[in-house]
Nucleic acid binder design. Structure first.
Lengths: 338, 338
DNA sequence: TTGTAAGCGTTATCAC
DNA sequence: GTGATAACGCTTACAA
């Protein structure tokens, strides 16, 4: 079965393709009568416009590229849903690629999207990303680039981020208020904005309460479950700590497992807070306190910024989305009756 | 900065666009020397082929559409990764859409993909999908359709499914072997292949052990956490059951919560098994026994079938991917010392 | 209000 | 081994 084109409709109706094109686009310059006639016929013949041809001619595409480190992170899949929520009704479709946290894959993804002539790219950088030529190329090609979560401040364009500083501050302050005194922070690579900012929030709360910050309690590059588990086992042998604020829920779960293995009195003598509020956080026993990042909202804003940028209004700003502290059992008040 | 085209390269090199096109495609009929020269120049000028133009001309696209009910289900995001693993290296990109379990959204997604002239569609049906014209249209348009997980057997083309019958059989048999006697099954809509098959596996195990099946112990349309919770609360008031096999991990988690609320002796006096092995299953306490479906493998096979179909070899078969029972605490042996 | 014709960037089919 | 030309399906000045 061959695809129906506007030429087929034109022949059937005894008019020219241009009239069909205009009629389908609801162009005022074609009479209401023909517009109706054309639309009815198009429907009847099962016409589906060829968006490739249309995009080629118009020089703009309704495909938006999206690159995330991993699609199976709750936070990222929520963002995708938020983006779709705005972009699909506006007539855009999403070309989604994963970088799997690797720079090389990210570069390939960018090139692939550019070859497909996407109308714009929405991206959260991989943890490995320390060079930015591939993204500078996007900007130089005048393709709107919207960044979110893990962003590079040196690239022009909208950046949507969570309020990491406040989130980390709230998490740490809560541990302090619960009576914990020696609070370690398991972070990621501090050169990455999200982790750097969480460290700032952590330090702020600690300094506020205790005056000075013990830098040796801040440990970097701990974002996986395995590294969380290994690190807590190691640290408990060497240091006197009674709580950990993790920059992610997966590493927090590693700590959680370590504490259970060691039969630590947890919670009660040991406090734990994560970041990200993955679905499993509330399912654990004890349930894991965490910072909820509103991924849908981040996605919606990113999508709106993309639409604005496509329409010629590129905001070179950073939009900060609030976060919320979810208080659960893992960080409850220290047990003083011993 | 304007986009570089083959015409630009052609002018620069003093040859015609056709030569450039051929050279870049490694056509034997152009000399090795010019091929090298052209490629070097293309590289230097930062040429990125316009795939829209290419697809339009060739009448085939390197975009593959993919429709899943929800992107944030572990199973589905794994499948997406598996599909990417095969499709990206082969030069295809994925246009991903979510149906959010709604027929209307699914129909829209199909049309959107068709308008974008994707080279094929890989889909898992929404729970609501009970009419299939939108998919028949895909088949009629000669666009390869590969189905996975929730499939419609009446549509031609490859179908990749998990071995639901065996999975359900293993889960139920395990509960029986652990000493549970009155095992209910919380299922989905039995008209959907995956749920229908799980019911068959459940019945097979029950019949094998006890001779007859009490149909009133099979409850349909329980696939969410909330419905799992509500149903177990209700059922425990009315019936004498000591175990549940759930057709999904989310409903199993609802049951899990219900049992905890009721302070049931669980596990020990009550057994529970889920399906899907979501990441949280092993994180629960007690950990949830479940059936592991190898999503990556399902995705890889679906992608391979798609590539075959694009190359003209459309297999009208159902490929069954094995599952694995993950034995954990929630289904451990019944507590007989009371 | 509608028609004409050119062109978006490729590639396939002829030629030479 | 390379060039000329038409065509994929659509949109848009410019005419009429």
């Amino acid at each position: 079965m061959k695809k129906v084109t506007i030429n087929d409709i034109a022949k059937k109706l005894g008019v020219t393709p241009s009239t069909i094109s205009r009629a389908l686009a609801d162009n005022q310059r074609v009479s209401q009568a023909t517009r109706d006639k054309v639309k009815r016929m198009a429907q009847e013949m099962g016409y589906q416009p060829n968006l490739m041809a249309s995009s080629l001619r118009k020089g703009k595409s309704d495909l938006i590229g999206m690159i995330v480190p991993r699609i199976n992170r709750h936070f990222f899949s929520n963002i995708i849903s938020g983006v779709e929520e705005i972009l699909n009704p506006a007539g855009y479709s999403l070309l989604i690629m994963q970088s799997h946290e690797e720079l090389e894959a990210e570069v390939k993804a960018v090139h692939s999207l550019m070859r497909n002539r996407v109308g714009g790219i929405i991206i959260s950088l991989s943890v490995e990303t320390n060079s930015f030529e591939h993204l500078q190329g996007v900007v130089d090609a005048n393709v709107p680039l919207v960044q979110f979560d893990r962003v590079c401040k040196n690239l022009k364009g909208p950046k949507i981020v969570n309020d990491n500083i406040t989130g980390a501050y709230l998490a740490t302050r809560h541990l302090i208020q619960s009576g914990y005194k020696n609070i370690a922070h398991f972070s990621g690579n501090k050169m990455i904005n999200v982790y750097g900012e969480r460290i700032i929030g952590y330090k702020k709360a600690i300094a506020e309460a205790f005056g000075e910050v013990d830098e040796s309690l801040i440990m970097e590059d701990i974002i996986t479950r395995d590294s969380g588990l290994e690190t807590i086992q190691q640290v408990l042998k060497e240091k006197e700590i009674d709580a950990v604020f993790c920059a992610g829920d997966y590493s927090a779960f590693g700590v959680f497992e370590g504490l259970k293995d060691l039969k630590a009195e947890f919670p009660g003598k040991f406090g734990l807070v994560g970041f990200g509020n993955e679905p499993f956080a509330e399912m654990l026993h004890p349930s894991l306190s965490s910072i909820e990042q509103d991924g849908r909202e981040v996605g919606r804003i990113a999508a709106q910024e993309m639409i604005d940028a496509i329409n010629g209004v590129l905001h070179n700003i950073e939009r900060v989305v609030p976060v919320e502290f979810k208080e659960r059992e893992s960080s409850k008040k220290i047990n003083i009756n011993f």
